[in-house]
Design a protein around this nucleic acid. Sequence first.
DNA 1: CTTCTCACG
DNA 2: ACGTACGTGAGAAGT
Length: 615
Amino acid sequence: MREFQHDIAGDRVTVHVPETAEDLQEFWEWLYRARERGPVALDTETTGLDIFSPGYRLRTVQFGDAFDAWVLPYERGGYFASYARDAIRRCRQVLIHNAPFDWLVLDRHAGIPLEDLAPWTTDTRILASLVDPRQPQEGGIGTGLKPLSAHWVDPAAPDTQAGLTAVFRSLGLTKETGWAGIPLTDPTFLLYAGLDVILTARLEPVLRRELRRLGVRDQLVTYEHELARICTVMMRTGLVLDVEYTRGLDGQLGDDAERYAAEAARYGVENVNSTAQLADAFAGMGENLTERTASGAVKVDKNVLLSLADMGLQWQPLGVRTPNPLALAVVKAKRAGKWRQSYTRTFLDTVDADGRCHPFINALQARTGRMSITRPALQTLPSSDAMIRRCLLADPGHVVISTDFSAVEMRVLAALADVKRMKLAIERGEDLHDFTARLVYGEGFTKTHRKLAKGVGLGKIYGGGAATISRQTGAPIEDVQRALKAYDRLYPEIRRASSRWQREAFQTGMVKISATGRRLPLDRDRTYAVTNYMCQSAARDVLGQSMIQMEDAGLLPYMRLPIHDEILASAPAREAEEIAREVERCMTWPLYGVPIVAEAEIGGRSWGSLYGADY
DNA sequence: CTTCTCACG
DNA sequence: ACGTACGTGAGAAGT
């Protein structure tokens, strides 16, 4: 047995590393005593983050409480691995920091189904997010184990990640190769692996106490754990990648990027992504660029480039000026380069041996609670052109089903602010923006009127002013100002609720969402954002509640992605119609009496088929 | 590491 | 009194 000592918060703690069968017996005896006393903290060390790539290895499994940690060298196999697996199965209450990652690792590489482990897990990252969801850049503690431990457990808690990076370097390894290459005998590696579970064990009671002090409901904690589990099942399932099509598209985008970059080079622009070079080149061509960025530099973004190229936002020719050939080449080169780099490359980099991509879904990421998806960022694929979404497919024999809520943030606002006339219109099943336009401009309202009403409605939700709404909608500012006044007369409850929410939030710097009891941090110099936080957060929980209802209805095997106000699913073609109706049913329910409704669209084999692709 | 840009809801 | 668009992830350039 190897043992390492360390001091945490004034206590001497011990990290044990079993080396023999007798050592494992000792571990076993500790485990039985520990699980009688309370929850056992659990963690894994692996070769990296790409859980689904070939050659991925589970290296160690750690168990611990507030004073002792045991690092089992799983990679050695034999009884080290079987003791680790059995120990996990014997634990009843388990504490994990960022559980979805370890659930997936243990599911895929240790044969422990996440369905078995998840019900017994408390994720300290979820607890921390519910205390304060802010990242360090936003002035929060963050949700990493290190900053949380430093804040709640011991200011001198070691930065195990940074410490290991230094060890990696001393061994001639890098941040990327270190996790796979470091010997399992390395003392720093073993010590830090052990300390992580000890810190997790110490974090949990502190965060629980803090949640109680803040009045956060247990129900919310349970609900977040259910959502995390549902999202982890979706990650495990992943989406089929049309590898052949994606390779073809990747090559084509690469060729396009190269061709248009060469065109730009003829005008002296070596790098189409350099705004400085572009500004110089356009100045040399006699173009007068007037817009500036926040820091005072010449603004050269897509809007500027498209107007120089005499094109509208959808790339349609406008015919108001002579198109600048450099601008045209640059927008084309940039788009092709970005779409290749951000999408097709990432698809091909992350696809597993079975041809599936497993994005990382963070069920509780934004400060409003919104979910996010990374590697690849599947919530942000282009929707104006189907070519990128065309890469992702429903399962063999399946079709894609996209079901989205109808104007969910407007409905949520009507519910939370008790907006009488809006609620009436929703109950009658009217289109909200039509309804507003009719009340303001009469029966003969035009498309422009509706667009303005929609812009103002959205502006209300975002907390925008007349100038921004005017810029976004393209409507004259006087029209917007009039429409805003009319809007406030029609729906006076919105302004009243907004003022009340701002007043309440200013006291504590926290927004409290009535429906869930969730607390959101609000910057005191941006109290106008409170309406948006209310709507965005409540809408996120409308999605979350619907996802739970979908699981209850047996739909989890079909669920693929949560996209803010939409659920993407894959379902057998023959049952698609029936499943689509079931999904709609799960996403349709009243929020404080306001009907939330959703509509399903059934596509073909590829996700792109819902955006105009013919497959 | 910050800034700018661009993709989404 | 007035006015403030919200939330993300990702890549590239530049400091």
